[in-house]
């Protein structure tokens, strides 16, 4: 084993090979570390077209579902509405018909005429088929 000392003004030339060998050997880690493999990391799978656009596909499907639901529900309600957004049921008030079977309200004159169609004529107003005596 070699032992290096500082000797100022020493005429003896240092054996640089020994010095460097000792220096570098002292710097070299001992024992040399072994490689410790890290725990299995999740390898990133290559993306498919579906995986890349899956978010957009789900969003589009959601919007389509909402639209279809809206149209389906809207089919159960009458399309015609009043100016205030409510259904115009003024012609159905007092009627025994269900709202779904209600008839379309008629203009006033025609409505009176139609209302009297089912009444039997009475008194002099009845047209006479008999021959005058």
């Amino acid at each position: 084993m070699s032992n290096m000392t500082m000797m100022p003004n020493d005429e003896q030339r240092p054996d640089v090979d020994v010095l460097l060998h000792d220096y570098f050997q002292s710097e070299l880690p001992r024992p040399w570390p072994t490689f410790q493999a890290p725990k299995q990391t999740r390898v990133k799978q290559p993306e498919t077209v579906f995986a890349r656009y899956s978010g957009r596909i789900v969003l589009a499907a959601g919007i389509a579902l909402l639209l279809a639901g809206y149209l389906t529900v809207a089919g159960y309600f009458p399309a015609r509405q009043g100016a205030d957004g409510l259904e115009d049921v003024t012609g159905q008030i007092g009627s025994k018909d269900s709202p779904s079977k209600s008839k379309r309200p008629l203009p006033p004159g025609k409505a009176d005429h139609q209302q009297n169609d089912h009444l039997e004529p009475m008194g002099d107003a009845r047209p006479s088929n008999r021959r005058p005596d």
């Binding site: 070699s2 290096m4 640089v16």
Partner: peptide, 19 residues
């Protein structure tokens, strides 16, 4: 490089001795 180091270490007064 070895020559250069030897000269500089000599100038610094470094001596190597064996036991």
């Amino acid at each position: 490089a070895r020559q250069r180091l030897a000269e500089r270490l000599t100038a610094q007064g470094v001596k190597e001795t064996h036991e």
